[in-house]
């Protein structure tokens, strides 16, 4: 059985990516299972999806702990523990990660024994220019940034399909066309081009990903089961004791777009932008300027749309952190 796990963020198209691979393998005569896994989070939160493919009906279900291939469409996820990227990355598993960094860097950073490949999608595909013809800048963050999140995942899917060695180019194309049929012609065409570019880059690596040897009952280490200790409701009720504990969860890691305020041009009408922030991630400093708590701003871009003077800009998070303008986030909103 082939086991593939794909990591991305909500909105990156990872569910679709798993479906493209699932569909392609299905078209090649495999039995297939593909599924997304997510919680109550929204856009930008880490999600993953998985694909199993076998020549016989698949009985195994649920999260893949022992993958043959792990695809990561956003390298900033590696450091997010909740994303679980590292799970099962042993000497057998192949890691395919979309990153500017070289494969050897990731191999070393994560102390990986298995093969690592990188797809540098933004270098290969070119960073799309901000759309200037789609109305007022900043009113539509999706087009203002001009980066189609499906491109990186499509590129990774193409590369993954090549590494699997089980999917001919034409099958990949057919699978993409079926699964992206709702995207519209031009987005589908761009995604397809991205996927095929990924495929062509890795075609000479076809078959790098191989199924694992079937486990035998004797080689499994027994689970470290415990008997739950009884604890009083003071401890064991699902209660959050006190306020503001959520500040400890750095939801800022979910952000794919960063709002950046041009304080020079800001009119200090902070009720317009800071109050509507759904995450309470904006506060007003002593001089009346809005400030953003980047540890907790999820990048929803509501403030960008709210600002009547268009002085909040949306910058792709990757670009923002690469520029090194990661100004230390204010510790906490003063109450």
């Amino acid at each position: 059985m082939l086991r593939i796990r794909l990591h991305g963020r909500g909105g990156h198209g990872m569910k679709t990516a798993s479906r493209v691979l699932g569909r392609a393998l299905f078209l090649e005569g495999y039995q297939v299972q593909d599924a997304p896994r997510y919680g109550a989070e929204r856009r930008g939160a880490p999600i993953f999806a998985y694909v199993r493919a076998d020549r016989k009906p698949i009985l195994e279900r649920g999260v893949i702990r022992e993958p043959d291939l792990v695809v990561v469409a956003d390298d900033s996820l590696v450091q997010v523990p909740a994303a679980g990227v590292r799970l099962g990355l042993d000497a057998h598993a192949v890691l395919l990660i979309d990153s500017h960094e070289a494969a050897s860097v990731w191999q070393e950073r994560l102390a990986l024994a298995g093969p690592v490949f990188t797809t540098d999608s933004s270098a290969v595909l070119g960073r799309a220019a901000p759309a200037t013809d789609s109305g007022t800048p900043g009113t539509n963050p999706e087009t203002a940034v001009g980066e189609d999140p499906y491109l990186a995942s499509s590129h990774a899917v193409g590369a993954a399909a090549a590494l699997l060695g089980a999917i001919p180019r034409a099958t990949l194309e057919a699978a993409l066309r079926t699964e992206l049929s709702e995207l519209g012609r031009s987005r589908t065409a761009r995604a397809l081009a991205a996927a095929l570019a990924g495929y062509d880059t890795f075609q000479d690596r076809a078959g790098t990903v191989e199924p694992r040897r079937v486990w035998t009952p004797g080689e499994l280490s027994p689970p470290d089961w415990i008997s739950l200790p009884f604890e009083t409701a003071d401890v064991s009720a699902p209660t959050i004791h006190g306020g503001a504990t959520s500040v400890k969860v750095r939801t800022g890691l979910w952000r794919t777009l960063r709002p950046v305020i041009d304080h020079e041009a800001c009119h200090r009408c902070h009720w317009m932008c800071a109050f509507p922030c759904p995450d309470g991630a904006m506060f007003v400093d002593s001089e009346g300027y809005p400030q953003i708590d980047l540890d907790h701003c999820k990048g929803c871009m509501i403030c960008v749309a709210q600002c009547p003077f268009h002085v909040i800009e949306a910058i792709p998070e990757r670009a923002a952190s690469a520029l090194g303008d990661d100004s230390p986030a204010p510790a906490r909103k003063p109450s």
Binding site: P223, D224, W225, I226, L228, P229, F230, E231, T232, D234, V235, T239, I240, H241, G242, T245, K248, V249
Partner: peptide, 28 residues
């Protein structure tokens, strides 16, 4: 079906939720 590793993960969540273990000694 519950492992030691899972309980360890849960303790981290309880720490974030400011659960006070020491004030309420466990009755094992």
């Amino acid at each position: 079906l519950y492992t030691e590793g899972e309980l360890r993960e849960l303790r981290k969540l309880q720490a974030i939720a400011a659960v006070q273990h020491e004030q309420h000694p466990e009755q094992e």
